[in-house]
Write a protein that binds this DNA or RNA. Structure first.
Length: 553
DNA sequence: CCGCTTTGCGCC
DNA sequence: AAAGGGCGCAAAGCGG
């Protein structure tokens, strides 16, 4: 595989052919290009044969290439792979140290919006991508688990390409459908600063039921006081708290909260801000979550409510292929722990049903509670009562998450199957996480509680993180399969438009939709093999071919 | 007035 | 005895 390094140099670009071997280390042909000339050069080189483009950060290079109609097959995103290697217990930190090494972890992705290829004073320009590449190759080569880390870094980089392409293509979004939906639920769009009619009516009902004529139901403290004055013994105003009470205020208040949430999160101003030219274009941030899940920026992409999904509609003559994995995390746990009994339950399309038929638990609900408790560290109530039974029937799986929890409690770092390391306790991420939670530790009990909380985090980390690795492999393989299905440029072929942890949406010409569905399944099989080899484990998908996202599932 | 924190809720 | 993971976002509240 040829490897070509790109780096900015003043107003231009320096392109260097690299030898892929570490020791070879030599650099070959060096070409200088203008920024304008880059896309054509990349496109031509890509057509000539397989290349792994090596650059500091995909968000700094790829959007401009896509705008110019150039799609690349593979890359190394040094920002992302460096972050992986520097935190991985499978890589030697000494090999990653160097003069400009400190700048790499600090490098932030470019959050889009700014189409300029070369912004002024980019901190990335003070970094040396060739030196960083050599450090990373050395760390990979010296790792006792070179294969796993190599797969992980390749998958992470593919994810960066997929993420950029998804933002570029956008999720098809019918603003007219969305507006119709809002009007149906909320009434006509009000002038700025006023409530829509339906909310105004519900607010009136809430005020009447609480005998609080001036109440602003959007203010939690005011609402709490009004509820308490009306005799409701509540300590907060959450919906699930209110649900427990029979009081005339509850139905209109719950309805008010539901609709106020819709207005605030996905109302008319969301539409104005985030939908342009029939597309919703969130920015996806691969590796944005410590576990390896993606984060997102803009428009709340990772929590598009079911309520507004009717507005995601394929173009005329096109279809959406929506696919999600059933119970990804318990299946991944079965694979990484090589727990044959849990894998056997996972043979069924519904893992929880598989547990029932194996006689482990009596009902599906119990199975789900027990499994979620094992993944999250829930030990209270019914979830906790299931644990001994699960531990007896699935000793390897439960043992793996228990070990991860104990490791976290004693301050050790844990890792995913492919070697992503958990953040160290007491480190930056841990501080932020703790700050969001409780007050500083004051005594032994608080310290003990914090240790347990960290154990729950590391317990979940190994499973959530390995699940994210499966999903990365899935979309990386799917991305290439989709490219081979069609012809023309990216937006003329079937292409990914959305990804959410264990779910993908593909926008495709309608006549290719069934083929796309097949490729989505084939990619899932590939992902399972890449992570778990020939360990017998199913990842059943729920795949729908639909016009609107709302019709999936 | 701004910027940060808190609250609550959407997704997995 | 108690013990539920990860995010993003908007509005209200609060302090400077």
């Amino acid at each position: 595989m040829d490897r070509v390094l790109l780096r900015r140099d003043g107003d231009g670009v320096v392109v260097t052919e690299l030898a892929d071997e570490v020791d070879g280390g030599g650099t070959g042909t060096r070409t200088e290009l203008s920024a304008d000339g880059l896309p054509a050069w990349v496109g031509e080189r890509e057509r000539r044969g397989p290349v792994r483009w090596t650059w500091d950060d995909t968000t700094r290079w790829y959007p401009a290439l896509l705008d110019a109609g150039v799609r690349v097959e593979r890359c190394t995103d040094l920002r992302l792979t460096g972050a992986l290697l520097r935190r991985s217990p499978l890589a030697d930190p000494a090999l990653l140290a160097g003069e400009d090494a400190a700048g790499w972890p600090a490098l932030a992705p470019r959050a889009g919006g700014d189409p300029a290829l070369f912004p002024l004073d980019d901190p990335a320009d003070r970094l040396d991508p060739l030196a960083e590449h050599r450090r990373q190759q050395a760390a990979l080569a010296a790792s006792p688990h070179r294969g796993r880390l190599g797969l992980l870094t390749a998958a992470e980089s593919s994810g960066a390409l997929a993420a950029a392409e998804m933002t570029w293509a956008g999720l098809p979004w019918r603003a007219d459908e969305h507006a119709r939906l809002l009007t149906r639920l909320l009434g006509d769009r009000p002038p700025a600063g006023l409530r829509p009619p339906v909310l105004e009516r519900l607010a009136g009902e809430v005020r009447a039921a609480l005998r609080a004529p001036d109440l602003n139901p959007d203010s939690p403290p005011a609402l709490l006081r009004a509820l308490q004055t009306a005799g409701l013994p509540v300590e907060d105003t959450r919906s699930w708290t209110l649900e427990r009470f029979e009081h005339p205020v509850v139905p209109p208040l719950l309805e008010y909260k539901r609709l106020a949430r819709l207005l605030a999160a996905n109302g008319w101003s969301w539409l104005d801000t985030w939908v342009r030219g029939g597309r919703f274009r969130p920015v996806f941030l691969p590796g944005g979550v410590v576990t390896g899940r993606w984060a997102s920026h803009g428009g709340g992409a990772l929590s598009v409510p079911v309520q507004v999904r009717p507005a995601a509609v394929a173009d005329e003559g096109w279809a959406l292929v929506v696919a999600d994995v059933a119970q990804l995390e318990p299946r991944v746990l079965a694979g990484m722990s090589r727990d044959a009994a849990l894998a056997e339950a996972a043979r069924a399309a519904d893992l929880y049903a598989g547990m029932v038929s194996a006689g482990v638990v009596a009902t599906r609900a119990e199975a789900k509670l027990g499994v979620l408790g094992a993944l999250y560290g829930g030990t209270r109530g019914e979830s906790g009562r299931m644990m001994p039974r699960l531990a007896r029937r699935y000793p390897r799986a439960i043992g793996l998450v228990e070990d991860a929890a104990r490791a976290g409690e004693r301050g050790a770092v844990v890792q995913t199957l492919l070697g992503r390391g958990s953040p160290p306790p007491g480190g930056e991420w841990a501080q932020e996480a703790a700050d969001l939670g409780e007050a500083p530790e004051r005594d032994g009990r608080d310290a003990e509680r914090a240790r347990r909380a960290w154990g729950r985090f590391t317990r979940n980390f190994v499973v959530q993180g390995t699940g994210a690795e499966w999903a990365l492999c899935w979309i990386a393989d799917l991305r290439n399969r989709l490219w081979r299905l069609g012809g023309g440029s990216l937006h003329e072929r079937p292409h990914l438009v959305f990804f959410l942890h264990d779910e993908v949406v593909v926008h495709t010409p309608a006549d290719l939709a069934d083929e796309v569905a097949g490729q989505v399944r084939a990619a899932a099989v590939t992902a399972g093999r890449l992570l778990f080899g020939d360990f017998p484990l199913d990842f059943p998908l729920d795949v729908s071919v639909v016009r609107s996202w709302a019709d999936a599932g």
